[in-house]
Computed example of a mutant assay.
Amino acid sequence: MARPLDHAKRAELLAGVVAYIADHGLAELSLRPLAAELGTSSRMLIHYFGTKEELLVQALATQRPDIAALFAEVTDAETLRARLTAFFEANADGRGSASVRVLLQVLGAACAPAGPYARYAHDAIAVFVTALAAALDRIDAIDDPEAVATLLISGLRGIIQDRLITGDAERTTRAARRLIEQNIR
């Protein structure tokens, strides 16, 4: 008979995964060193999560911001620009960088044919596009809200990645603000 899951232990394990991957990277992720760092065994990680990929997907899900709430009730361009700017700053300045670093690695891995993270990456992008497009649609001054949402999301993601790689806060902040200002008038 299978041992029942200890939900508190499972939550504790998930809390440590994103920080571990941010420090060690996704490409070389191995369950044994991860398990040792988390104070458990690779066998127990498989017991709790099934696969290494599922472990990562579930860990990322615990870190996902509530995008729908971020854009809820936005009805004017000024508020939307402010929320997007705040989102960029919160995720580019280090406060959210551990989960952002991991998410960027997962998105890159999802580009591989039959990548294990393709469904997660697709869903993460779709949630963001849908919520932002709905806010843009409420503004009424935006032609093709879905395309503009895609442009903003992809552009900001690229600028955040640039910031994490180069550390150039001044240039990337200017670029993010310009992207937002030019697309939400």
Rank of each mutant, 00 (worst) to 15 (best):
R32C: 08
R32T: 15
P33F: 13
P33E: 14
P33D: 04
P33M: 12
L34N: 09
A36M: 13
A36P: 07
A36I: 12
E37D: 14
E37N: 14
E37R: 15
L38Y: 12
G39N: 06
G39L: 08
G39P: 06
T40H: 10
T40K: 09
S41A: 12
S41I: 10
S41K: 11
S42I: 09
S42H: 13
S42W: 04
S42L: 06
S42F: 09
R43I: 09
R43G: 14
M44T: 14
M44I: 11
M44N: 15
I46N: 00
H47Q: 03
H47W: 08
Y48G: 00
Y48I: 03
Y48C: 00
Y48M: 10
F49Q: 08
F49T: 03
F49E: 05
G50T: 06
T51P: 01
K52F: 11
K52A: 08
E54Q: 13
E54F: 02
L55E: 01
L56T: 13
L56C: 13
Q58L: 15
Q58K: 15
L60P: 03
A61Y: 13
A61P: 06
T62I: 04
Q63G: 01
R64H: 08
R64S: 10
R64P: 04
P65H: 05
P65S: 01
P65C: 02
D66L: 13
D66E: 15
D66S: 08
D66W: 13
I67L: 05
I67F: 11
A68N: 14
A68Y: 12
A68W: 11
A69E: 08
L70I: 02
F71Q: 09
A72H: 10
E73G: 12
V74E: 09
V74P: 01
T75L: 14
T75H: 15
T75W: 14
D76M: 09
A77V: 07
A77F: 10
A77P: 05
E78I: 12
T79N: 07
T79D: 12
L80D: 06
L80V: 04
R81P: 02
R81S: 02
R81W: 10
A82G: 02
A82V: 03
R83T: 03
R83Y: 04
R83V: 00
R83C: 00
L84D: 03
T85K: 01
A86Y: 02
F87K: 05
A90C: 05
A90G: 04
N91I: 04
R95P: 03
S99K: 08
S99G: 01
S99D: 00
V100M: 10
V100W: 00
V100E: 00
V102A: 00
V102Q: 00
V102T: 00
L103A: 10
L103T: 02
L103C: 07
L103Y: 11
L104F: 07
L104S: 06
Q105M: 08
V106Y: 04
V106D: 02
V106H: 01
L107I: 08
L107T: 01
A109Y: 09
A110T: 00
A110F: 07
A110W: 07
A110I: 06
C111N: 10
A112V: 15
P113F: 12
A114R: 11
A114C: 07
A114K: 07
G115A: 13
G115R: 11
P116E: 14
Y117K: 05
R119S: 14
Y120L: 14
Y120M: 08
Y120A: 06
A121E: 13
A121S: 15
A121I: 05
H122D: 11
H122F: 13
H122T: 14
D123N: 12
D123H: 11
A124P: 05
